[in-house]
Design a protein around this nucleic acid. Sequence first.
DNA 1: CAGCAAGTGCTTGTATACAATAACTGTCTA
DNA 2: TAGACAGTTATTGTATACAAGCACTTGCTG
Lengths: 250, 250
Amino acid sequence: MTASPPPQGTHPYNRSMSTRPTRTNRRTVYDELRRRVIGLDFGPGAPLSENELAAELGVSRTPVREALIMLAQDGLVQVFPKVGSFVSRVDAQRVSDAQFLREAVELASLDDIPADPDPEVVAELRANLAQQELAEDDLDQFFLLDEQFHHGLLRLAHHEGTWQSVVAAKAHLDRARRLGLHDRSLHDFTVQHTEVLDALLSGGAEEARPLMRAHLRAVFDDIERLRARSPELFAPSVGQPTRRNIAVWE
Amino acid sequence: MTASPPPQGTHPYNRSMSTRPTRTNRRTVYDELRRRVIGLDFGPGAPLSENELAAELGVSRTPVREALIMLAQDGLVQVFPKVGSFVSRVDAQRVSDAQFLREAVELASLDDIPADPDPEVVAELRANLAQQELAEDDLDQFFLLDEQFHHGLLRLAHHEGTWQSVVAAKAHLDRARRLGLHDRSLHDFTVQHTEVLDALLSGGAEEARPLMRAHLRAVFDDIERLRARSPELFAPSVGQPTRRNIAVWE
DNA sequence: CAGCAAGTGCTTGTATACAATAACTGTCTA
DNA sequence: TAGACAGTTATTGTATACAAGCACTTGCTG
């Protein structure tokens, strides 16, 4: 009873796997809510009612609730039992940690990119950069291309499995960036991306590392500048029960 | 409707937070199942029936199901819709990526440990090492102390927020280690831990880094040796629909 | 008027019933 | 005997009903 035998015969692990769409409502709701949280359609601190979301999305509470549990594990939502669910505030410490993790992983991965990288992936990265230059006005499109670019670099290093952790950290960074990223041109980032790739292909990890570090730091500096300007958007690092009233919309 | 206003008055974020136990059944089940998966009470590939688990644990399907969803996000469980839920096999690529992420984060964190580290945490680490020497026969106890040790190092670097990602990666490593970690004495690891801490406190990150790298590599080498010896415990990196029959227990 | 207290409405947590579907099993047929 | 095929069983996905608890409201009371 406690020790169940492994599956016999055709195990799902051995079957198609590739041709398996299996789009459950839970997954659809998860993707949608995650998009709204990162895209600031749901601002930090906003309450998320399971009943309301279920009604709006045309499903029952179950898939909504399960999606919220997944988002809570991502750190994007906080669930207070018997009280309510809320979009996580932008925690300064969490943003810092996300930046730290991303920087550590992405810089280390540069060392594992072979001297003869997969030409197919390189071509994708080139095409991606070309698109970045065209999409510098569309923040959503730019973030999408940005994700694909950094994902591609990890694929070059054969560390695609770490992408999940990186993208989870990146979610918090992007949310913070989106709060006040209007005065800086996205073109700067595209230039930095191009410099990183060029240095990598010509000089290897040695030359690419300082450029990558500068790029990731530039992203982080943007967030720090925003925090200095609008500290109220960020949650206190270790919250004493402050109980000051939050500004009320409307 | 789409843009809910932020909470008014006393927001849960402003309340106790510290004195909030809130142990739901979901959390209890999650902790228990995670312990069993990592502790190999549920072997890789074992089927996990929601109904069976619910009956055994004395709860309904709901908390069990939600716990499985959380475990699936950790990569420890795979859920195939309308088919079944299974403990993830030990994927070689995933173990490699987990090792890579852990190494990148922990090595980078050494640089951020101040020259005058928190004496309280240092004392905890010393006490932890003393306990390690006493617990070298109890694998469960050793893994617990090992976690606390590496967690403490991250706390010294003020990057405690990354612990969640590290412990998620460590779960896959520990599971792999547990499969065949019997021929090597745990004492070696305790010695390595001590060397890392001593070097850190006397010579800083410069001296600690190579020792930490050696330690993490030693853990990884253990796993690689196991894979060479018992490849059937590992899932194929990119699964072609192999359909070979898995060895059947009992 | 201040303070307290019961009540009310909302929230999430849990249990359960039903639906959809994949996989196995037995039977029938050529 | 081999294979096709339909029925059976077990699985997860979803919807819904009920339970438990917190926070706010409202009325009472001193």
